[in-house]
Amino acid sequence: MIDFINYYLIPGITLGSIYALGAVGISMIFGILRFAHFAHGDLMTTGAYIALTAVWTLGLPALAAIPIAVVGTALVAVFLDKAFYKPLRDLPSIYTVIASFGVALILRSAIQLLWGTDSQVYVVGFQKPLIFFDSLRIALRHMQIIAFTVAIAITLHFFLSYSKTGKSMRAVADDPELARIAGLDTEKIVRWTWIIGGGLAAIGGVFVGLDTDIHTNLGWNLLLPMFAAALLGGIGRPLGAMLGGLIIGVAEEICTFPIMDIEIISPSYKSAIAFIIMLALLLFRPQGLLKGRVL
C-alpha cells in the first residue's frame, strides 16, 4: 500500500499538477478565443528553456527563475497572438488551428536552433527523498511542484471570482456576443488570456524540468493529456481544467499499478490512457465534468 502511495500516487499528483498548469491555458484559449491551441505544449518548452538560461547566466535556482520564465513566455504568447492568430480571427476557427500547428513547429525549431537538442537539467545530482512516518517517501521537488500548483489554483480562483479582468474573462467565455454588447474590451481580455495562459504554461514547463529533464519535445509530448484535461474539466472552466489535469495525471500513473503482481496495462502504453479518457469524453460527455461549453 505504501508503495502505491510512494511510487504511483505522488508521482501521479506531480504529473497531474504539471498537466493542470498547461490545461488552464488551453481551456481559457478554447473558451475565449474559440480554438484548440496546438502550440501550447511548445509554450511550456519555451518557458522551461528561458528558465534554463536564467539558471545558467544568473546562477539562480530553478524556482527563482520562474518569474523570468513567466514574463518571457507571456511576452512570446502575446507576440504570437499578434503576429499569427489575430490576422485570422474573423475566419472560421479551423484556420487558426492550422496556424497554431505551424506555430508549434516554429517555436520548437527556434528552440532547437537557439539551445540545441541535447537534454538538459536544472540541477545535477540525485536528490534524496524526504521520509515521513518511517515509510512515506516524498521527493522535495514533488512537494515543491504540488505546493506551488495548489497556491496557483487558489490565486486563480480569487482572480477569476473577484477581479474585474477575471470576471470579464469568464463573461467572454460564457457568451462572447453578450460580453461584447455589454461593452467589454475584448482585445484586452484576449491579451490577458495569453498572459495568464502563457505564464502558467511556463511554470508548468519549469516543473517538468525540475521533475525530469528539459528537452525540445517536452511540451509537445504533454499536449494530448493537457487537451484531455481541459475537456475533462469543461472548456472555458480554468479550475475545472486543473482538476482535469490532476485526474489525468493520477490516472496515467496508477493505471500501471500491478494488481496481485500482474501489470494490467504495460507502462509503455500509459500515455494512451489520456487519449482513451479524451475520446470517451468527446463521445459521451463533451461538456466535461463541470459543464463547460460545447463548441
Partner: peptide, 28 residues
C-alpha cells in the same frame, strides 16, 4: 465510426491521439 462526427478541432485532437497510439504500438 467513432470520431467522424466530431467538430473539426476535436477531430484534430482525436486523430493526433490515434497517430500517437499507432506510434506506441509500432515502437512497443
Amino acid at each position: 465510426r467513432l470520431c467522424v462526427s466530431l467538430k473539426s478541432d476535436y477531430l484534430a485532437m482525436a486523430t493526433i491521439g490515434i497517430a500517437e497510439i499507432i506510434r506506441l504500438i509500432i515502437v512497443n
